[in-house]
Design a protein around this nucleic acid. Structure first.
Lengths: 131, 131
DNA sequence: CTGCATGCAAAAACTTTGCACCGCC
DNA sequence: GGCGGTGCAAAGTTTTTGCATGCAG
């Protein structure tokens, strides 16, 4: 089985405290403050491990590197087309879309991943700042 | 503006004829039959260009390399958890989820990308082949 | 001819992995 | 002390890019 490691614990806690879905690189940079000798490889190994055991989530926004979410509970994400920031989105009542999608499909649909995109609150405010 | 190129035309036609959402590597391999000296760089450049002008779509399944869809019309995709194949999925009545998602959101939602996942028809048949 | 497109190759960006050593249990 | 974890570095994978040449308009 798996053993305790201060590095893994710290990575998990770091992610739990952030809501900006950092990349592996960002996690690495912050971990180095606490573990000056930690390696990127260790960060990746732990991020993958934590993802596999369901303690964090890996996001693949399609643009740029993968990001990580310390909140393992199912929820949605928003990607800003302007600044590429990734925000959490609570959307309820979307479970039925699996059924909808399976309507004319021979296989079985077990889930879905959705990324909403558009203009985030900050960029919206910035663009509308006239006068 | 942009100039005609046989390579680009061929890539576009190749994608229009396939429904398996090939990767850049696959496109490259097939293009080489017609253009033995074509380079991967040219394939990538044209795939990106065609994506930008909206003649094809780029898919980022999260697992493995990007894939390309010769059908520029909005539709959904299914990714098999077993064989990783990517299938088209026609799902209607999902436009409202943008509104649903924007309910408690300060920014503006302009669209969404959804990947359904589960077991594809082939893998389902294969796993259920008892008797 | 002018400038976008190509081929080639180098390099960038991101992620994984082999190996020897370290530390949890 | 055995086995998983780590650091380090090399390598793997995927994609982009610089540059000289080629071809469409």
């Amino acid at each position: 089985m798996q053993k305790y490691s201060r590095q893994r614990e710290s990575i998990k806690n770091f992610l739990a405290d952030r809501y900006d879905h950092p990349t592996a690189e960002t996690v690495y940079l912050h971990m180095r403050e606490q573990f000056p000798n930690i390696s990127l490889g260790t960060v990746y190994r732990n991020l993958n491990l934590l993802t596999e055991i369901g303690e964090i989530q890996k996001l693949s926004p399609g643009i740029g590197p993968d990001r990580f979410d310390g909140n393992p509970a199912p929820h949605y994400h928003f990607i800003c087309s302007h600044c590429s920031s990734v925000l959490d989105l609570e959307v309820s009542g979307l479970d039925h879309i699996n059924i909808l999608a399976g309507q004319n499909f021979g296989g079985s649909i077990e889930g879905h991943i959705t990324y909403f995109y558009g203009t985030c609150p900050s960029c919206k405010a910035a663009s509308g700042s006239s006068s």
